[in-house]
Design a protein around this nucleic acid. Structure first.
Length: 302
DNA sequence: ATTATTTGACCGGA
DNA sequence: TCCGGTCAAATAAT
């Protein structure tokens, strides 16, 4: 495969960059639990900028096609579309309390900016399901999507299902930043967040699935100190101070509910999810993706 | 003016 | 044909 790709300077560069990306990601993984959050941040930002570069390389390579022009879809796009269709999108399900802890009609903010594009009554469910996509879908082609549905049992809780990848670089930063800000701004004395996280990653290799805090059997409830969920552990969020998410050890026996800002939890979950996405995308990159790229490039040289 | 939400239409898969 | 996901025109918000 390298033979054909080598024929095109731009594509070869992308391949190099992807290799670099994977190397950095593995370094990052190695340092994740470690004692150097600054190094992690540095690695993460490097990954981010290299990804940007690769994307723009690909875009220019695709738009300045010698044949056909921009009118009809290139074979590369067609091939990938087919494959994307075949493979299941990753699904990440979270049960989270409503914003403000009370009976608000929105779930706790997860730091990403979403745009609602639909709502449906769901058979057998008491509440409609809202459909949201990333605000940067048009500007950056971000494919991330989420579905929000009020729980049947308790109207104070929502089931949020995240589908697909966040490819918008800026928003993951914004997630962490806005998150800390929101948590700091909110002076509501107490949130009740009953949180459940379930991740299914059909696109992941088995060996990749046991990485991070999602090792725990899923779904699961946090009934004590959520040490496995503190933001520090997530590669894309900066450390937050303890007063931002004070844990109340005194759990009302009602249901082992832990009190802490739902945002921090949602943001941490989102960041972890994001990291999984990046890792699997990178791993896919040197296999399937490069295969597609090779097909695409071949079509121009044939 | 632009950007977001609402809501019935539309479409594809089971 | 039914269900659920998305589109898009109308409408609201900023």
């Amino acid at each position: 495969m390298a033979s054909v790709i080598d024929g095109n300077g731009g594509s070869r560069l992308v391949v190099t960059e992807l290799g670099h990306l994977k190397e950095l990601a593995m370094q990052l993984e190695g340092h994740l639990g470690g004692s150097s959050p600054d190094l992690c941040k540095h690695l993460a930002s490097q990954i981010s900028s290299i990804t940007d570069r690769s994307i723009s390389l690909l875009i220019t390579a695709t738009s300045s096609s010698p044949h056909g022009g921009a009118s009809d879809a290139p074979p590369f796009i067609r091939a990938t579309t087919k494959k994307r269709k075949r493979m299941d999108k990753k699904r990440h399900e979270v049960r989270v309390g409503s914003a403000g802890g009370g009976g608000g009609d929105h779930p706790a903010d997860d730091g990403y900016s979403w745009r609602k594009y639909g709502q449906k009554e769901i058979l057998g469910a008491k509440h409609p399901r809202g459909y949201y996509r990333c605000t940067h879908k048009s500007s950056q082609g971000c494919a991330a999507t989420k579905q929000v549905q009020r729980t049947d049992e308790d109207p104070a809780f929502f089931d949020v299902v995240y589908l697909g990848d966040h490819t918008c670089v800026q928003s993951q930063r914004a997630a962490a930043t806005a998150g800390r800000q929101a948590a700091a701004d909110a002076q509501a004395p107490e949130y009740d967040a009953n949180l459940m996280v379930k991740t299914e990653g059909p696109a992941l290799e088995p060996e990749q699935q046991r990485r991070g805090w999602e090792d725990a059997p899923t779904p699961f409830l946090f009934s004590s100190t959520p040490a496995c969920l503190v933001p520090e552990r997530s590669p894309f969020s900066a450390p937050s101070t303890s007063e931002n998410w004070g844990v109340s050890p005194a759990t009302s026996d009602s249901n082992h509910v832990v009190s802490f800002p739902p945002f921090e939890v949602a943001a941490a979950a989102a960041a972890q999810f994001e990291f999984e996405e990046v890792m699997s995308a990178i791993d896919r990159a040197d296999g399937e993706f490069l295969e597609d790229l090779d097909i695409y490039v071949s079509s121009f040289l044939a």
